[in-house]
């Protein structure tokens, strides 16, 4: 039987299918339904240094083949997270990747250093691209110079694997991918949700309190496949592909495009077992095609 384990910048995963930040809480929300140890990795919801309130409601809106969200990264802050959620997460045999963010360059560097000494953290995914934070964070994902400074600053302060999560709304994804690699990132993940909005025509008000939000779900899958293909052609570090995966076929597209691993996001809200089922589908696909490991499929797009 094919081996579906993968290594992402030193993080060894039993399967190439992770759950994406913001769609799986901190783990306990789905623990009744999903064997957390069967996931490739758990990427927890974004954490910054101080506790944060997030946006007002409504925070999400369903759209055709997807959904908008503008949750605004509410979180208990570094100390609150480590105290309340890490003891739970340490019980499971699964890599815990903490998604981290900041409002300033200093905050990015500080949060990286703080997590450096936390037991049970396998790596940090760097959220430079949340479309719903007004101060700073959005620009760290779209301004190449700010992006470089954020990642380089974090690299100096932590030994943990660093995985910048790239914004899709840039003119040249390859330059962000290369910059991440140049700054010492261990992998990159993409894409974050795509900036978007929806309007209630009867009230003429936006459907989100934040006015705009991020589009996720199958509506963005083809956009994500294209960006993963471009980004992976520009770097040698592993790429984690995400955006609208509902089935194992969607995930295999990312792998063929160049991804070493993938993450399931919005689909968790529909079927929390998606990541487990997708991993099974990938294994069977590799078996059927006589491939011994995921790496034999990664980046095999024929053009």
């Amino acid at each position: 039987m094919s081996d579906v384990s993968v290594n992402i910048g030193g993080i060894r995963m039993k399967t190439p299918v992770m759950v994406a930040s913001g769609t799986f809480g901190y783990g306990p929300e789905y623990a009744d339904l999903v064997d957390l140890s069967g996931l490739g990795a758990i990427v927890v919801k974004g954490i910054c240094v101080e506790p944060t309130l997030g946006n007002m409601t409504p925070r999400t809106a369903e759209t055709r083949s997807g959904m908008l969200n503008a949750i605004g990264l509410p979180n208990p802050g570094f100390e609150g997270f480590v105290e309340k959620h890490m003891p739970f997460l340490r019980q499971y045999d699964v890599p815990v990747i903490v998604n981290v963010w900041g409002r300033t360059l200093e905050e990015y560097a500080d949060i990286a250093e703080k997590f450096d000494s936390v037991d049970g953290v396998a790596g940090l995914e760097v959220n430079v691209s949340c479309p719903n934070i007004k101060e700073g964070s959005g620009l760290f994902g779209t301004d190449l110079n700010m992006f470089r400074q954020a990642i380089a600053g974090m690299r100096e302060r932590t030994r943990l694997p660093l995985i910048p999560k790239l914004a899709p709304n840039v003119s040249d994804i390859k330059s962000f991918a290369r910059t991440a690699e140049d700054c010492g990132a261990d992998a990159i993940s993409l894409i974050n949700s795509y900036p978007a909005m929806a309007i209630d025509i009867n009230t003429r008000r936006p459907k989100l309190a934040n006015v705009t939000g991020g589009l996720s779900g199958p509506a963005i899958h083809p956009i994500a496949v294209k960006l993963v293909w471009e980004a992976s052609s520009a770097v040698n570090i592993p790429v984690i592909g995400m955006g609208g995966i509902m089935t194992w076929e969607d995930a295999v597209e990312f792998i063929i495009a160049g991804a070493t691993a993938v993450a399931v996001g919005t689909a968790n809200f529909v079927n929390p077992l998606t990541a487990i089922e997708v991993a099974g589908g990938i294994r069977e696909f590799l078996d059927r095609n006589g491939m011994a490991s995921v790496s034999e499929l990664t980046g095999t797009l024929e053009t």
């Binding site: 769609t23 409601t57 959904m67």
Partner: peptide
């Protein structure tokens, strides 16, 4: 009767 998305507490839509 708040709008809900995930139903289990993960997404923080219905706060």
């Amino acid at each position: 009767d708040n709008n809900m998305c995930c139903g289990v507490g993960a997404c923080l839509t219905c706060v």
